[in-house]
Design a protein around this nucleic acid. Structure first.
Lengths: 135, 135
DNA sequence: CGGTATCCTATTGGATACTG
DNA sequence: CAGTATCCAATAGGATACCG
């Protein structure tokens, strides 16, 4: 079971990316992933494929501009696929790729965290604001 | 061990927050968490407390403005604590709260994902751009 | 249905200089 | 050391109207 030396070490070294460095490309990628629209779109697609209008309805209040922009970027990044069915009228389905499903595990976790811990955060805000009132 | 019925069900119902809804407060919270600076600060503090200047050095290229702004917001939200030691010169330490450490597990996972899957994303971009050149 | 195009405002965030 | 304050350029993102 100790066959993880040279090959694994090279593997480690090869992905010597560090998102803490401003000029590292992974820093920009982290910036892209750290986007509310990305979180919502990827989370929405986690259970299964959806059409454009389904997504628009699910992500309440998203403008067509932001929805399309986010979908295009995620398609380009290999997170999801866009499938056009040339019926009348047209039908377009969006589906996570294996890479996207992998990412979805993390992003839905963040979204769920926000939902599950909002009360604690809210309480912390009230405490902070109370302590810093007129002090 | 089967004492998780009524109380737990109410617990579930009580946190009926849905971040997909624009006007749900958790949507705003998700927006806050979906921030590159938040990810980096929380990830940087995951191993242990750091001083202001340590953070500035670790998160290469962050401006004092963004660093302070991010730290204040996270402090208000109960994610981290700020401890001033009135020595000469002053010493200020930032440390994750239990809530923050919990969140850090998720955010460092996203940061690590960016580092570990950048090559795949980059390859996808090249493919996308090649397919959409002059087409 | 599934977008695109344009306009316009608000916010983000870097650079810079100064302070207790 | 650990910020604060100010200015300003760039970007995000909503509203709206139109198109294949």
């Amino acid at each position: 079971m100790a066959t993880r030396t040279a090959a694994q070490q090279r593997e480690q070294a090869r992905s010597a990316y560090d998102a803490f460095l401003r000029d590292c490309p992974t820093n920009q990628l982290l910036d892209r992933l750290s986007d509310k629209w990305v979180s919502l779109v990827v989370s929405a697609l986690a259970p299964g494929p959806l059409r454009y209008s389904d997504l628009a309805r699910r992500i309440a209040g998203v403008s067509p501009k932001m929805l399309t922009q986010t979908l295009r970027t995620l398609e380009r990044d290999g997170i999801l696929t866009r499938t056009v069915t040339p019926s009348v009228p047209v039908r377009v389905d969006y589906e996570l790729t294996p890479l996207g499903r992998n990412l979805a595990l993390l992003l839905t976790a963040v979204k769920d965290w926000a939902e599950n811990h909002f009360d604690e955060v809210h309480a912390a805000r009230l405490r902070y604001d109370a302590d810093n009132t007129g002090a």
